[in-house]
């Protein structure tokens, strides 16, 4: 890795948005493989994720890093022509959605983003997701983990219904279910029958790591 490549990682990880974008453009203009530039961004995101887990970074940094990544992606992706590089192997598949009746998505989007930068293949099926859609998506996507999100207290029953339906349909075997949201605690984990609950995005990532074959 040359000096500039290392600098790009530092600039993205240190939230130096303007300089990071300028350097990414410079590297691409000089003919650096766009897949290599994206790989450098992923390395930077690993650092951002770690700093978030360690309490050095918070939501503003997480969201800004995502924005920088998106902008570099927009620059890099059109330049990708048949490349011999293969996409890196994902840690596991996670299906995520906000349960029916609830329209909130801030927490769900943050968890999705964190799972994505931590190497999971995440399918986000949106908000106000009916039970039947969860069942269909589980069959089609075959995830190892399901994350049910909900901000309102009405989500307690929606989560319980969704988990019961997964069980009744015979889809629970081998599947781990985690719930999360502003009002979720151990009482609600037990009430809904979920395997775990998460207080924040770091909890979600750790649970998914533990639950998938690629994790520790």
């Amino acid at each position: 890795m040359d000096e500039n490549e290392k600098r790009l990682i530092d600039l993205v990880a240190d939230m130096e948005e303007d300089d990071a974008l300028a350097l990414a453009k410079e590297l691409l203009d000089c003919g650096v493989d766009p897949l290599q530039v994206l790989a450098l961004c992923r390395e930077a995101m690993d650092i951002v994720g770690k700093r978030f887990e360690e309490g050095e970074y918070f939501l503003p940094e997480l969201i800004l890093a995502g924005e920088v990544l998106d902008q570099i992606g927009v620059m890099a992706k059109p330049l990708i022509i048949d490349s011999p590089n293969k996409p890196s192997r994902k840690l596991g598949k996670v299906l995520i959605g906000t349960v029916h009746g609830d329209l909130h998505d801030i927490g769900k989007n943050i968890v999705t983003f964190m799972l994505d930068i931590n190497g999971f293949e995440v399918k986000d099926i949106g908000i106000d997701v009916p039970v039947s859609t969860f069942l269909d998506e589980i069959q089609a996507f075959q995830p190892q983990v399901i994350c049910l999100s909900g901000f309102l207290t009405l989500a307690f029953d929606s989560m319980k219904e969704t988990i019961e339906a997964i069980e009744v349909s015979g889809l629970r075997n081998g599947l781990k279910i985690q719930i999360g949201g502003g009002q979720i605690d151990e009482t609600i984990r037990a009430y809904t029958g979920a395997d775990a609950y998460g207080l924040n995005a770091v909890d979600a990532v750790n649970f998914c790591r533990k639950s998938t074959t690629g994790g520790e």
Binding site: M15, E17, L59, P60, E61, L62, I63, L64, E67, I106
Partner: peptide, 11 residues
């Protein structure tokens, strides 16, 4: 909005 205010804090 959420994304806007969080990025404003840094930008």
């Amino acid at each position: 909005g959420a994304k806007g205010i969080l990025t404003d804090i840094r930008r």
